[in-house]
């Protein structure tokens, strides 16, 4: 048990770091205990997990062909750099 209860606002503030396993032990435990009692924050947690996944797959589309061509030429010329 932790001796400090946290509010929904504070729990939500830490959800992403909680998902990243980046919280210090006591803060991690405070979030866990909050989630055990709070259905709404469990919903927030699930949504945060999904949103994080959405961000991860946002890979900026494709490299446009014209840019690819120019940069490939630039790389070819690197042996003349200095």
């Amino acid at each position: 048990m932790v001796d400090r209860m946290i509010s929904c606002v504070e729990a939500v503030r830490h959800l992403w770091e909680f998902l990243d396993q980046g919280l210090p032990d006591d803060a991690n435990q405070a979030v866990e205990e909050h989630l055990a009692r709070c259905v709404r924050c469990c919903g927030e947690l699930e949504f945060a997990r999904k949103l994080r996944g959405v961000l991860r797959t946002a890979t900026a589309g494709q490299l446009p062909d014209d840019v690819r061509g120019r940069l490939a030429g630039f790389i070819d010329d690197l042996d003349h750099a200095e």
């Binding site: 890979t59 900026a60 494709q62 490299l63 690819r68 940069l71 490939a72 790389i75 690197l78």
Partner: peptide, 10 residues
């Protein structure tokens, strides 16, 4: 650089 170009550009 050629291998990493798409990721680097992204």
């Amino acid at each position: 650089a050629r291998d990493e170009l798409p990721g680097l550009y992204g």
